[in-house]
Structures are given as C-alpha cells and as structure tokens.
Design a protein around this nucleic acid. Structure first.
Lengths: 130, 130
DNA sequence: ATGTCTGCAAAGCTTTTGCATCGTT
DNA sequence: AACGATGCAAAAGCTTTGCAGACAT
C-alpha cells in the first residue's frame, strides 16, 4: 500500500533501462535501448526491455512516438512536437512557446528546412460523448 | 511510352480497389479494403490489395495515415490533418483554411472535443543539407 | 511466503516478397 | 510475344505473450 506500489518492483532491469534512456534525446527504438542496456546486463531479454519501456510510459516517464513501423521513446514528456529529418531519420524535439505556438528559434542548429507537416488531434467525437 | 504507362496496366483488381476506396471517408486499413473488394473479386489476394494501394499512393491518388501499427488510406490527397476519436477510433478529415490555420467549423458535427494533439514536421536538417 | 518480474521462445499482426502463372498491351 | 500483375505462401519486422523459474518485498 506504499506509494511505490504503483511503480511495481524495483528491479535492476527497470533501473538500467531508465538510466539508459532518461537523458537521451535521440528518440531510440526498443531495439536500440536493448542494445545499450545489454552492455550492462548482458542477459536481459528484449521482451523485458519492452515490458519496462511500457511501464515507464504508463507511469508518464516516457512518451512514445510512432514513426513508420516502430515505436520511439522520448523522456521528454511535456507536450511537444517533432522535427524529423527525412534524410538521416534523426528526430528533434520541438518545444512550444505557448499551446499551438511554435518557437522557431528552437529549430535545430537554426538550419532545419521544413517541407511537410501533419497534425493529429485526439479526443472524443460527438457520438461517443453522448 | 504512352502517358498511361506511368499508371501501369489496367487490371480489374486495380480498378476495383480504386472504386472501393475513392469516395470512402472512413480511412480504411488495407485489410478493410481487402474485405470489401473481396465481395466483388472473391479470388483477389491481400498482397495484390497492398500492391495496388501502394500504386495509388505513388500516383498521388491516395494518402497514407499511420495510426498505431496500421496504415490507413485516404482518398483526400490535399494537405489536411486528422481528428481521431479515442473512443471509437474513427478518423475525420480536418481541412485547413490557410496553411497552418484550422477551420473549427469543420470539427465533425460541431461536437468533437480535442484533448491532445501532436504535430510532426518533416524536412532536412542542417547537417544533411550541407 | 507471496506475487511480480525475468528470460526464453513461440506466436501475433501487419506488410513485403519470391515465384510460377496469368493477362494486358 | 513481352513483360507487368496476380495469387499463393513464405518471410520479414516489430511487438506481445505463455510459461516456468527467479527475485523483491
């Protein structure tokens, strides 16, 4: 009944996954996290990495970004958007000045050229609200 | 070398896929298109549906929207955004008044409640541009 | 002691692909 | 006749899951 129950048990696998990703700005995939964590815990399994990443997402310590066919994990959980280079596939965080207002100064290295964008709005439709 | 070469051959599979989706606003997945097309061409294969959908995308007759783990196809190819009901998973098109300006009047049935949104901007980073 | 978490491997789901054959041009 | 498209089935890529044993509390 202690507060930490909601986070489940403290295992070295979970701790290592978190340590590996908490300051990472490269938006790694589960597999990339697996490869890095493996250097410290050679016996960890990919399934465990997935389960721990899910747990961190459920506890709001990570955000998931779906790109192509894979999930990318982002320790920046405040609402923000993404800049995706179609040439090297790197992903940059794009912070907002105020809701809906983009801060151009944060375009990476001041040199990102935007050629397309897409926005998705999530919520509840009229039919489901009633 | 005729102009129609760029569209490839005219097969009844391609024609049926197109007829099935061209006026559809429900953003069906490949599998949903397959199920509908199958009612007219019972022997069509899922692989053929995928190949024809790809062809229509390549010819700019369809747009792809990645949601969760699946591709959704949209015959509305002008730049627009999406409204996704998290309760029933329906997807609504959201047109723009001018680039970057959302037209609230188009919120489906005037009754869609937005709780979250995410934007992705695509382009070229400084490193790749040089 | 209890029940959660782990490693392993198998299965799942969506999408792609190899190949022999069919059908358009 | 030529070669692009099809059907079938297998494979691929990513993620989830069943299970028996290990571990945290």
């Amino acid at each position: 009944m202690a507060a930490r129950h909601k986070f489940g048990r403290q295992t070295k696998q979970l701790a290592t996954v978190w340590q590996t990703i908490k300051d990472d700005q490269s938006h790694p995939t589960a597999d990339q996290v697996y490869e890095r964590v493996r250097r410290q815990l050679p016996n960890i399994s990919l399934g465990t990495v997935y389960r721990n990443l899910q747990k961190l997402v459920a506890n709001n310590r990570l955000q998931v970004l779906m790109l192509g066919r894979s999930q990318h994990f982002d320790p920046l959980v405040e609402r923000h958007h993404h800049l995706i280079c179609e040439s090297c596939d790197r992903v940059f965080d794009l912070l907002l000045e105020s809701p809906g207002e983009i801060r151009p100064a944060l375009l990476p290295e001041d040199g990102f050229t935007i050629t397309a964008h897409h926005s998705a709005f999530y919520g509840t439709c009229k039919r489901c609200a009633s």
